[in-house]
Computed example of a mutant assay.
Amino acid sequence: MPDRITLAHGSGGKAMQELVNKIFLSYFANEILNRQEDQARIPLAPLTLTGEKLAFSCDSYVVDPIRFPGGDIGKLAVCGTANDIAMSGAKPIYLSAGFIIEEGFSIDELKQVACSMAKTASEAGIEIVTGDTKVVPKGAADKLFISTSGIGVIPANVDWGVQHIQPGDQILISGNLGDHGATILNARENLGFGGQLNSDCQHLYPFVEALLPVKGIRTLRDATRGGVNAVLHEFVASSGCGFQVIEQALPVSSPVRGLSELLGLEVLNFANEGKFIAIVDPKDANLALSTLRQLKGGSDAAIIGEVNSSQKVSVLNAFGASRWLDLPWDEPMPRIC
């Protein structure tokens, strides 16, 4: 193979077949994908024996840079879509993967991304069963974009959703805020934080699975683009409730706090790729918290606030003063996922 992607790799001819066979079929090999059909013919048995509903999600990934401390665009593409599925209580099972590759992109870099995706999917028990590849002329895209869709199974006794949120419910976060957004910003702008920052990009289903026995879970949402602030505003719109966050209760690492203070940015707006918000009945909040804290990577989980009837998002500071928290008009850090 040549060492760079050419337009021939998207032509449907021999070059494209070689690319698909030597990279994607090689790294993602499984019984369904290896048939090389135009669709994935998925057996229904594993989808129907454990639940009554399917969770389906799709997302696209354009992160810049495509490799960053703690992950890369490939790991992000698997975890991001799998995590969206998991927020319903579902176990992610199958993914599709579509690649838009810029002419001139390094074949070795593409192999590294494919290897990262395969490793992440394998560790999560997920199969990549179908996909697509397109090559665009140099300058028509920036290196590599990936689009993934996924399917998972929701257990029969799980019915989480924003419609269940009530005033008095507790707001939980599964760990430190802002690690991914701060890491991408530092890597992109060379802010000098060196190896202090690492993305939290990870598969969240093990945390979700541990919470399945907790009866008081109202809903979960992973706090990705727009951070915790965006999630809580989405909850306001969907539930009609309000949400107050206690500033002193927010778990934030020292490097992330330092970066946010240096730049004057609100850490609640920072993206996460391995943390979620849980809204929990107050009777079960401590059980949910202790469950998360017992898991590897969950020691920093915290109760960070409470649901009220204000139909606003507010922050309570250490002096007892409250301020409304608005959404920023635009994206302060584009291409973080």
Rank of each mutant, 00 (worst) to 15 (best):
G168W: 05
N157S: 04
E189I: 07
G181V: 13
T183V: 04
P167C: 05
G175C: 07
Q163D: 02
D169T: 06
N157P: 00
E189L: 15
Q170G: 02
I173H: 04
Q166G: 00
H164D: 05
S174T: 14
D169P: 07
P167G: 03
H164P: 05
R188F: 06
L177M: 14
L185S: 10
V162W: 02
I173D: 01
E189R: 14
N176D: 08
L185Q: 11
P167H: 00
I184Q: 02
L177G: 04
W160G: 02
Q166M: 08
V158C: 06
I171S: 10
W160R: 01
T183P: 06
I184W: 01
G161R: 05
I171Y: 03
N176A: 06
R188H: 12
G181S: 10
G168L: 08
Q163F: 03
Q170A: 04
G175K: 06
Q163M: 05
S174V: 10
I173C: 05
A187C: 11
R188A: 14
E189F: 15
N186P: 09
G181P: 03
G181W: 00
I173M: 13
R188M: 10
G178L: 03
L172Q: 12
I173S: 05
I165N: 00
D179E: 15
N176L: 06
D179A: 13
Q170F: 14
H164L: 13
V162L: 01
I184S: 08
G175W: 04
H180G: 05
V158W: 08
L185Y: 13
L185K: 10
D169N: 10
D179L: 13
H180R: 14
A187P: 14
N186C: 13
R188V: 00
N157A: 10
D169E: 13
G181M: 03
Q170L: 12
Q163Y: 12
A182L: 12
D179F: 09
D159W: 01
G161L: 06
N190T: 12
V162P: 12
Q163E: 11
L177T: 04
A182P: 02
A182G: 11
Q166I: 08
N157G: 02
E189V: 07
I184Y: 10
G161F: 06
D169H: 12
N157C: 00
L172V: 00
L185I: 05
A182Q: 03
A187V: 02
Q170Y: 13
I184C: 09
V158R: 14
G178T: 13
N157M: 06
N190G: 11
N190D: 15
I171V: 14
G181A: 10
Q163H: 15
Q170K: 15
Q170N: 09
V158M: 01
V158Q: 08
I184P: 12
R188L: 13
H180Y: 14
Q170R: 13
N186W: 04
I165T: 11
G168F: 08
I173W: 03
G178W: 00
D179N: 15
G178Y: 08
A187E: 14
T183H: 05
T183W: 08
A182I: 08
V162S: 07
L177E: 10
D159R: 09
I173K: 00
V158F: 03
W160M: 08
G161N: 09
N186L: 12
Q170M: 12
D179W: 06
T183G: 11
L185C: 09
D169I: 01
G175Q: 01
G161V: 04
I165A: 00
N190H: 15
H180I: 13
G175L: 05
N190E: 15
S174Y: 04
T183E: 02
D179R: 07
V158I: 15
D169V: 03
